[in-house]
Simulated assay, not measured.
Amino acid sequence: MTETGIIDTHLHLVNRSRLTYPWLANAGSLNADWSLESYGAEARRVGIIKALHMEVDVAENDIGNENTWVAELSQQEQSLICGIISACRPEGDGFAAQVERAKDDILIKGFRRVLHVIPDEVSKSTKFINNIRRLSGTGLTFDLCLRADQLKLGMALVDAAPDVSFVLDHCGVPDIAGEQFLPWRNDMADFARRDNVTAKVSGIIAYTRTEQWVLNDLAPYVQHVVDSFGFDRLVWGGDWPVCTLGGGLSTWVAASQALLAGATHEERAKLFSGNASRIWKL
Rank of each mutant, 00 (worst) to 15 (best):
T4C: 09
G5N: 06
I7N: 05
D8V: 05
H10M: 11
V14S: 01
T20Y: 01
T20A: 15
Y21G: 14
A25W: 03
N26Y: 01
A27Q: 12
G28W: 10
S29C: 10
S29G: 12
L30D: 00
N31G: 08
E37W: 08
Y39G: 08
M54T: 08
E55V: 14
D57I: 08
I63W: 02
N67K: 11
N67D: 12
T68Y: 03
E72I: 08
S74E: 03
Q75S: 15
Q78D: 13
C82P: 00
I84S: 09
I85A: 02
S86I: 00
A87N: 15
R89T: 10
G94H: 11
A97S: 15
R101V: 09
D104W: 00
D104Y: 00
G110D: 11
G110N: 11
F111N: 08
R112M: 05
R112E: 07
I118D: 01
I118Y: 00
P119S: 04
P119W: 05
V122R: 08
S123L: 10
S125K: 05
F128M: 03
I132T: 03
L135N: 05
L135R: 04
T138K: 02
L140M: 07
D143R: 00
L146Y: 02
A148R: 04
L151I: 15
K152D: 09
M155N: 02
A160L: 07
A161F: 07
P162I: 01
D163M: 10
L168K: 00
H170S: 03
G172M: 14
E179M: 14
Q180K: 15
F181Q: 07
L182E: 13
D187A: 14
D195P: 01
D195L: 11
A199T: 01
I205N: 05
A206R: 07
T208D: 01
T208N: 05
R209M: 13
R209E: 12
T210P: 01
E211K: 15
W213I: 08
L215D: 07
N216H: 09
A219V: 02
P220S: 08
H224M: 11
H224G: 10
H224E: 15
H224W: 11
S228W: 02
F231G: 14
F231S: 15
W236P: 00
G238C: 10
G238D: 10
C243Q: 03
T244R: 12
G248F: 05
G248M: 09
V253F: 03
V253G: 03
E266F: 02
E267L: 03
R268F: 00
R268C: 09
R268D: 02
A276D: 05
S277Y: 00
R278Q: 12
R278K: 13
W280F: 15
